[in-house]
Design a protein around this nucleic acid. Structure first.
Length: 423
RNA sequence: GUGGAUAUAGCUCAGUAGGUCAGAGUGCCAGGUUGUGGCCCUGGAGGCCGUGGGUUCAAGCCCCACUAUCCACCCCA
């Protein structure tokens, strides 16, 4: 127990951390190109924030949150997603008084959901995400989608499928709910228990049900897209025009509904098509009512969340994972006490010159030092020993080429830099 | 929350009909060369066989419970 991480959590070990760092660097780089700036919000918030934004009736809020009472008797919840906290920060920081749109991103933000873990689903997971406030034109919807795809493509994801839908605004959704309920009412007894429950609360989600009986029942059901109000329909059309202008392929999929209550109009999913099956790596949408719901000035918003662990999974399955960077540019092997003293200062000089380097700290034989240098993949080994040392020189060994040359100390760093193609 | 599978060295796994059953490969450490890696040879460390009960003269192997992991559903990143 003591030596086992809690269920659904993972350590990021030194061997694998470069993978996450690489994906974080891509996210930052792309966000930078699009003019987004980083935002960081607390890992926990007042429980009420999620109840109000994500929605009281959602699965996430009803059964998946890590909620506890703190010593001040406040109900606190570890964030289950990224948007609510950023929306809160937008309000608290009065960012609506700054020039809009306000474009923000976050990297590897930890999120928590109490779920049964399985492939690509953890209790603590990490999301990259962006949020844009104060931009109502569908061009920003297209930008948000394009940014996500840009990140995924640069991360090496090949078979990406974009599905988009519009779930309308409160106005047209109410009308649609009525139409849908009218259609489903006679079939109600045939639906699964879950869906009978959804019928009154959120009939939209019945379309998403995988139960065979429910799938059958919704055959021929009215589609949300046919019930959008003029504003929402126009927005959705505009989005499709913008996507086309960007050369982005997409599929309109009316089954995309999303499980968070704050969404309005545009919703989308980016799915990696893998030999092992589909994996949703990114999902998002517009939430024009969220800021108002939280008591702020009416401000539209849109964003996405991208699963870092899932992205890493896709990279692995598509063999798109970058190779591990080398640990050292040069490893210094020493023989004898004098050599060791010289080695220590040489390593310091190498580091000062911007070359990563180290020497044996385990008091091992010269042979073992070489084995170690080989195992960690050091491209060059500097040997400090006997004769050369006395002459003020070292042996520089090219490990891949198995060639060796004598280099005076003062030429060591320039020579290494040249070999490594630095400067 | 529902259903299924699995649980033996750091890792991948053998362990056959319960009775030398605690093993192999790989990795790790060291030696074979007290000035040199990758190949090869030798040696070493490391497992109360997930935990707790039960059946039996005897259990890694059978039964039960628990825990953990994995997979599917639900949900979602």
């Amino acid at each position: 127990m003591l030596t086992q991480a809690p269920k659904g959590t993972q350590d990021l070990l030194p061997q694998g951390s470069y993978r996450v760092q690489a994906v974080e660097a891509i996210m930052r780089q792309v966000c930078d190109l699009y003019g987004y700036r980083e935002v960081r919000t607390p890992v926990f918030e007042h429980t009420e924030l999620f109840q109000r934004s994500v929605g009281d009736t959602t699965d996430v809020v009803q059964k998946e949150m890590y909620t506890f009472t703190d010593k001040g008797d406040r109900s606190i919840t570890l964030k289950p997603e990224g948007t609510a906290g950023v929306a809160r920060a937008f309000l608290e920081g009065k960012l609506y008084q700054e020039p809009l749109p306000c474009k923000m991103y976050y990297v590897s933000t930890p999120c928590f959901r109490y779920e049964k873990p399985q492939a690509g689903r953890l209790r603590q997971f990490h999301q990259h995400g962006i949020e844009v406030f104060g931009a109502k034109d569908a061009s920003v919807d297209a930008e948000v989608i394009a940014l996500a795809m840009d990140v995924l493509h640069r991360a090496g994801v090949k078979n990406l499928h974009l599905g988009i839908n519009s779930i309308g605004c409160p106005l047209c959704r109410a009308a649609y709910h009525e139409a849908l309920q009218a259609f489903l009412a006679p079939k109600l007894p045939g639906l699964c228990e879950n869906c009978r429950d959804r019928f009154g609360r959120n009939p939209l989600r019945i379309l998403d049900c995988k139960e065979e009986a429910c799938q059958k029942a919704i055959q021929g059901a009215p589609g949300i897209l046919d019930h959008l109000c003029a504003d929402c329909a126009g927005h959705f059309d505009a989005l499709q025009g913008y996507l086309a202008a960007l050369g982005i392929d997409y599929e309109v999929d009316s089954r995309i509904v999303r499980g968070l209550d704050y969404y309005t109009k545009t919703v989308f999913e980016l799915i990696a098509k893998l030999p092992t099956g589909d994996l949703t790596v990114c999902g998002g949408g517009r939430y024009d009512g969220l800021i108002g719901e939280l008591g702020g000035p009416p401000t539209c918003g849109i964003g996405f969340g991208m699963g870092v662990e899932r992205l890493l999974m896709v990279q692995e399955l598509e063999r798109a994972a970058p190779p591990a960077p080398r640990l050292y540019d040069a490893f210094v092997c020493t023989l004898g006490r004098d050599a060791r003293l010289k080695g220590l200062s040489l390593v310091a000089d190498l580091r000062k010159a911007g070359l990563s380097a180290d020497l044996d700290h385990a008091a091992r034989s010269l042979k073992a030092q070489f084995k170690y240098a080989d195992k960690i993949g050091a491209p060059y080994v500097v040997v400090l020993a006997g004769d050369e040392l006395a002459k003020g020189a070292a042996k520089l060994r090219d490990m891949a080429g198995s060639s060796e040359e004598e280099v005076p100390f003062e030429h060591l760093i320039p020579t290494l830099k040249e070999r490594l193609g630095r400067d």
